[in-house]
Write a protein that binds this DNA or RNA. Structure first.
Lengths: 204, 204
DNA sequence: AACTTGACTAATTCTTTTAAAAAATCAAAA
DNA sequence: TTTTGATTTTTTAAAAGAATTAGTCAAGTT
């Protein structure tokens, strides 16, 4: 039954997510995940070909959650600024909750940005595309003017990432959390950034 | 004669700068610098207490050049956008020429942003202050409106740094240059960013 | 006294080796 | 088809040793 397989995969994802979010990719072993589920390690490899696939699947799950929340909010058809501020905040909330999950992929990104790690590239694009659609909505509402949506969305995304200069940091081996204060600081900066950026795009 | 000391120090700085800019801090030895100047390594330590001081002195020299160019340009009293675009471009030029010099300090920064490495912190602040003064000038010209200069300058600086996400990168041990294309790409993004940011601050 | 050096020590980095841990496989059972 | 224990292969970690480099110092030169 393909149905049972999916259920089991979901259970595995759930358990793996907790471990990854808490201890990070590096400090989570397949044996531990298997133990949490109280079955053998070998079975994990029946459902996922390797550790990396499992990690990617978890990451995708979380990214989907991030995107979906914003997608839902977008349907309420508010102003661009509202949507973007919501996006920034909810994104930060999820990052806060799953910091060590992302820590791994961003360290991947840092070590090899050229090919985007080939793993996180797609996620990056999906997020950029969402920003792109948000901007498009703003244009339809006549709130802003944009010539190249993708380019502008990327610019926005990069500028927001710039706000956390000095945070991705840390010794990449330790899975230390940034303090809550740091998260708040970044969020505040990002909110201000969004406002300035949008004013910079507004019509007239 | 304190005069002679200064001349010698300048010569050392000049030679050291070339090595640091070319091979980076890590792959430049004090012995090599001494050899370039054809005198003994011990003498280097007569003029500079340690390698790090020498590096910092070189860095300061280059940062001064960066700041001065913009300072001069600023006196011509053009619009804020002109000044900022000039700042971004000349900064990029200098970074291009001295990439491996900065590579070290930015890796320092990444590994320990909390205390700003204590070395590069002051430089960072000086650059931010310059942005701050540029913004102030824009306000005086009634081109833009800014409530908190330092905060806004920092926001601008961070957003510009965000444009080079995926570049500071590389394996921090290798002293690989980013390709010229990458530099151009970043510069282009930064220029667009400056324009949007400034529009976001303009009056009315 | 200010400047310079060769020879020395101390600290750091690099390599190699070895052991431990964890990823991944597989034949066989339920 | 799903599950496992046992086995193999890869990665990581630690230790030891060699080599390089930072930094010191007493003594010599100008």
């Amino acid at each position: 039954m393909s149905k049972n397989v999916d259920v089991k995969r979901a259970k595995i994802l759930d358990v793996a997510k907790r471990r990854f979010a808490h201890f990070g990719m590096a400090k989570t072993t397949m044996a531990e995940i298997a133990k949490d589920l109280s079955f053998s390690k070998a079975l994990l490899y029946y459902y996922f070909p390797d550790k990396h696939s499992l990690y990617t699947a978890v990451l995708e799950h979380v990214v989907n959650e991030m995107l979906n929340r914003v997608e839902v909010y977008m349907r309420k058809a508010l102003g661009v600024e509202d949507i973007l501020l919501y996006a920034v905040e909810s994104r930060m909330t999820i990052m806060r909750e799953n910091y060590n999950l992302f820590e791994y992929s961003s360290s991947q990104f840092i070590q090899n940005p050229g090919e985007m790690g080939k793993n996180i590239g797609p996620f990056f694009e999906r997020i950029r595309d969402q920003y792109s659609r948000i901007l498009k909505k703003g244009v339809e509402n006549k709130e802003i003017e944009v010539d190249d949506f993708n380019e502008t969305a990327e610019l926005l995304l990069f500028s927001l990432m710039g706000m956390r200069v000095g945070i991705l940091s840390k010794d990449l081996n330790d899975c230390l959390f940034p303090t809550p204060d740091e998260f708040d600081l970044i969020l505040t900066k990002q909110q201000k950034m969004v406002k300035i950026f949008l004013r910079g795009l507004r019509s007239i």
